[in-house]
C-alpha cells in the first residue's frame, strides 16, 4: 500500500497541532491553584483539549488513506516537537537521557508500525 503525500502532511500537521496542545495543558497546569475543579475553569487547559481534538481530526483524516507503517512514526514525531517546545517555553533542560530515550521510542513506534503491516 502506497501512502499519499497528502496523508503524510495531514498526520504531520496532526502531530504538530497536538504538540501545542501539550504545551497549552502544561501552561495551564503550572498556573492551577490547588483543587481539581479549577481544572475545568482554565482557558489554557480548554485550549489544550481543543487542540488535541483538532489534531485527532487531522490524524483520522490522514489515516483514511496510507499505511500505518509510514504514518505511525510520523505521529510520534509529536514527542520531538514537544521536547523542543518544553525547552523553548518552559526552559526545561535537554539531557542525553531525554534525547536517547526519545530516539528509542521513535524507533520502537516504527517497529510496531512495521509489525502492524
Amino acid at each position: 500500500m502506497t501512502t499519499p503525500f497528502s496523508s503524510m502532511v495531514l498526520v504531520l500537521a496532526a502531530s504538530f497541532i497536538g504538540s501545542f496542545g501539550a504545551v497549552s495543558l502544561k501552561a495551564g497546569a503550572d498556573r492551577l491553584p490547588p483543587g481539581i475543579l479549577h481544572l475545568f475553569r482554565s482557558w489554557r487547559i480548554a485550549l489544550g483539549v481543543a487542540l488535541f481534538l483538532f489534531s485527532s481530526v487531522f490524524y483520522l483524516w490522514g489515516l483514511k488513506h496510507g499505511s500505518l507503517t509510514v504514518l505511525y512514526p510520523l505521529v510520534s514525531l509529536g514527542y520531538v516537537w514537544t521536547l523542543f517546545w518544553s525547552r523553548l517555553f518552559f526552559r526545561e533542560p535537554f539531557n542525553r537521557f531525554k534525547v536517547l530515550g526519545l530516539a528509542l521510542i521513535l524507533v520502537g513506534v516504527l517497529f510496531i508500525g512495521l509489525g502492524n503491516r
Partner: peptide, 19 residues
C-alpha cells in the same frame, strides 16, 4: 517486529524516567 518495538519503547521511557 512488534515485540522489538515494545521492548525499545519500554527501554526509551525507562531511560527518560531514570534521567
Amino acid at each position: 517486529l512488534k515485540a522489538v518495538g515494545v521492548g525499545l519503547i519500554v527501554i526509551g521511557v525507562s531511560m527518560i524516567g531514570a534521567g
